[in-house]
Design a protein around this nucleic acid. Structure first.
Length: 541
RNA sequence: AGGGGUAUCGCCAAGCGGUAAGGCACAAGACUUUGACUCUUGCAUACGGUAGUUCGAAUCUACCUACCCCUGCCA
């Protein structure tokens, strides 16, 4: 009653509740198990689950597995895992393949009404007679078979009497309809392919346009939310629901929203499939992929991804979102929640000339200074340290107030040091910095304007860090068959880095390293964050 | 005979006839044991264009323009 809509879908739901007197809202998330979920699915997930939740309703997970050629158990497992990781809880889990018998009955009902017929045209012939965008189609010569003949033929289709493609069941609607979807769409095709759940029980399989609306209706879905490209299918969606007598009101309503696009990446299961199968990436969870499993592996919190979907909103205009919005969400979440650990991504060696050779000191550094009374953990200090390459400038420019020759800087949680000398390699690159601890900084009133992170060389854990850039080259958009030309060959860079041993004591090590990155490096590149693979952390040292 | 959509700041996006929310990005400043975080300030006389209706239009009408989707026995 006093629910304030935050987008046009919720507005529509409010209207429907009034008009149709709905008592409960039910939505569904209907993936086909033919690939892994990506961040675009998270947007759909948020819309499906959060809309229902807002009105006290429920959401079903339904696998739209009506094409046995593409589907697999591996994908249903990964989909369940990803949804659970995001924290969404489905009310029921259904499979369109469990509805095959019901759908078959619906088809029989339409045949009996003279609203569906068995067509003998080949695929090519169907295409040729469908007409074009500007011309009407031609009616199939089999369009006016008797109901008895249709019933017989359809039963024989199911019984396996025909080869693949030999016959189809079509809805008898209107070959001259300006909406091509309404030109006697195919409801069933013959496919002698084993289904990952049904085995060889069926050799005819329902098409999406037929199965989807009736599956929605069977489950009592009130709002069927999908992406914009299905707008043209809505009249057909309604046609099946209104004409099948096995379906009773209230009917589900399909509402469409714009799908997510992100700059520099490809967000289409089909193309991601191509990346995986073509060996352009190492798998569905390759860190360059926009899949949920890849984000999880990189250490992105689920909350950050959901917040991203919240921030970009829901509308009907095609948009191209900038990836730094996601980064901002990740930063916000990690800043408030993650344990921080020092990590030196590109090291420079610092030798403290006035610090005793074998001395070690323990300092305690807050796990997260934004959290009150956050626990601290110990970090060992010694004569030789690594600091971040970027934290030293031989020729300081502008307001640079980290370390420079002759200048002082604070080592976080430890001493203030002064840089006395730069030692170079033969090629002119910096080999090490000779510095001295300013023990009496306080007495002398010396204040360091900058603070930097550091690690004791002897105690730091060496590891590989990786930095990721866009999957696609700047300004390129994916086009089929062009992948090898536009995929960014430098989409991944590896560094030899160092982290605190403490990072290894936590299973969220990846996130900790990244936290250091964000804190230090927010402005530098940040297309995609650095992460650390647990494996390489453990294997190194 | 084509049909279906969408156009508001660099990028998202509110707005639903009463005189342009918010976020990200960006800029300036304050604070700071990470140049992060936090805080403060700035950032569309303007809503694709042109006409109209109205006291009043981003919101209504007409025409125009641009972009997206649709001719799988995929979903």
């Amino acid at each position: 009653m006093d629910i304030i809509p935050s987008n046009f879908i919720e507005q529509a739901v409010i209207n429907d509740i009034k008009e149709k007197n709905l008592t409960k809202i039910i939505t569904r998330f209907p993936p086909e198990p033919n690939g892994y979920l990506h961040i675009g699915h998270c947007k759909a997930l948020c819309i499906d689950f959060l809309t229902a939740q807002k009105f006290g309703g429920i959401t079903n997970l339904r696998f739209d597995d009506t094409n046995p050629a593409k589907e697999d158990e591996e994908y249903v497992n990964s989909i369940k895992e990803d949804i659970s990781w995001l924290g969404f809880k489905w009310a029921n889990i259904f499979y369109a393949s469990d509805y095959y018998e019901f759908l078959y009955e619906c088809a029989i009902d339409l045949i009996k009404q003279g609203k569906a017929y068995v067509c003998d045209l080949s695929a090519d012939e169907v295409n040729a007679t469908r007409g074009s965008l500007t011309e009407a189609g031609i009616e199939s010569p089999y369009r006016n078979r008797s109901i008895e003949e249709n019933l017989d033929l359809f039963a024989r289709m199911r019984a396996g009497e025909f080869k693949d493609g030999e016959r189809t069941l079509r809805a008898k609607i209107d070959m001259a309809n300006p909406n091509i979807n309404m030109r006697d769409p195919i409801m069933y095709r013959v496919l002698h392919t084993s289904h990952y759940r049904q085995g060889n029980k069926w050799c005819i399989y329902p098409m999406y346009d037929f199965a989807h609306p009736l599956s929605d209706a069977k489950e009592g879905i009130t709002h069927s939310l999908c992406s914009l490209e299905f707008e043209d299918h809505r009249p057909l969606y309604n046609w099946f629901i209104e004409n099948c007598r096995l379906i009773k009101p209230p009917y589900p309503r399909q509402i469409e929203f714009a799908r997510l696009n992100i700059e520099g990446t490809v967000l289409s299961k089909r193309y991601l499939q191509e990346l995986v199968k073509g060996g352009y990436v190492d798998g569905w969870d390759d860190p360059r992929m926009p899949t949920l499993s890849a984000f999880r592996r990189k250490g992105y919190p689920a909350e950050a991804i959901k917040e991203f979907c919240n921030r970009i909103g829901v509308a009907k205009s095609n948009s191209l979102v900038q990836p730094h919005i996601l980064e901002a969400c990740a930063r916000d979440y990690l800043n408030a929640n993650a344990t921080r650990v020092m990590a030196v991504l590109k090291p420079i060696k610092v030798v403290l000339t006035n610090y005793p050779e074998d001395k070690e000191e323990v300092f305690y550094i807050s796990n997260n200074p934004t959290i009150e009374n956050s626990p601290k953990h110990e970090v060992i200090f010694s004569k030789e340290l690594f600091i971040e390459n970027e934290d030293f400038m031989e020729v300081p420019e502008g307001k640079f107030h980290r370390l420079k020759l002759g200048g002082v800087v604070r080592l976080m949680g430890a001493y203030i040091i002064r840089c006395d000398e730069i030692i170079k390699n033969d090629d002119g690159s910096i080999k090490q910095l000779n510095c001295s601890v300013v023990y009496d900084a306080q007495e002398q009133g010396i204040k360091a304007k900058g603070t930097i992170h550091w690690l004791s060389c002897k105690h730091a854990i060496k590891c590989k860090t990786r930095k990721f850039f866009n999957l696609l080259k700047e300004g390129e958009t994916y086009q089929k068959g062009m992948l090898d030309k536009i995929i960014n060959p430098n989409s991944m860079m590896e560094f030899d880095s160092y982290i605190e041993p403490f990072a290894l004591t936590e299973d969220k090590a990846m996130q900790f390293v990244r936290m250091g990155y964000y804190i230090k490096d927010k402005n530098s590149t940040a297309d995609v964050p650095i992460f650390n693979e647990t494996v390489s952390l453990k294997d190194s040292k």
